[in-house]
Design a protein around this nucleic acid. Sequence first.
DNA 1: TATGCCCCTTACGTAAACGTCAACAATCGC
DNA 2: GCGATTGTTGACGTTTACGTAAGGGGCATA
Lengths: 160, 160
Amino acid sequence: MPTELRRPERTFTIRQLCTEFKATPRALRFYEDKGLLTPARDGMNRVYSYKDRARLILILRGKRVGLSLQEIREILELYGEHDEAMTQNAHSLKKFREKIVDLEQQREDIDGAISELRAACERLEKHLAAKRPDLLPKAADYDQMLRARLDGHAESLGAK
Amino acid sequence: MPTELRRPERTFTIRQLCTEFKATPRALRFYEDKGLLTPARDGMNRVYSYKDRARLILILRGKRVGLSLQEIREILELYGEHDEAMTQNAHSLKKFREKIVDLEQQREDIDGAISELRAACERLEKHLAAKRPDLLPKAADYDQMLRARLDGHAESLGAK
DNA sequence: TATGCCCCTTACGTAAACGTCAACAATCGC
DNA sequence: GCGATTGTTGACGTTTACGTAAGGGGCATA
């Protein structure tokens, strides 16, 4: 991991973050609209700090696990100002607890879904092997797939 | 678990399934519209078989793990007719494989999100304990929460 | 017979999370 | 100095997964 990315004083343009995380400018601006991001400005242009980038990572992961932007915002707000809205926070605490239980359930669901899909794959494979072995994916294809995944990550490191 | 529910010849009304799984009639009809369910009819009325119920369970779990209805349909279709569209199925196989990788990633995301939330909860709790201990949730609340969860499940067993 | 409850279809409305397009400014390489 | 690229702000469009209301049938109970 390049230390350059970590240097706290480093900043990012909207496009840099977009290509790194496969988002769109529209999306980042939308998150800003909704109060999840508040990048600095250089004239008109948005300037994302290292912290903004960290928040973005949390936002995207939150989305992947099915949190709404609203919920994500509540979580992010914890990492900001304190003290003022304490009663609010008591409420947040409760909601977070519930969300944790929720996610634990979701984990089980995912495990279930994964084995379901694995079973389905096996069925399909057997079926194909019997009737149309020519359609079976080759080892090369799997190789290809892996490479694509790795490229995806490498890309985020920036070739330059 | 009541064996009554399992008897293959048992059928369900739309409302029975809805209350069992906390769905709405509108949702079930919507799934039907989209080809995910095809209950029999008694005159105008839908009659759900035990198999339909099983499909519904898969649908709902699929949703919880973030699959679109479209994706869920593809999975469900595997459990139906075979042979005809083999090339189609070769494609499905590939997509399923990808989905599995996806879900495994999602599992990691969830684990990450859970520890994130746990950390946030701890922070909040400490903060509250220091400044407004009166707002801290009591043991009784937790008890209450558990009971609610259990009730939720008991309900699905049907009290008569 | 009226009231209620459940069922149906059709159709329009909605919230979330952007996509897309228009119109314009700043900057870079040539 | 000019086109290409990247940035900006609106404003309207789109998709998904339903919600909600309108209008009507069927059966039971008071």
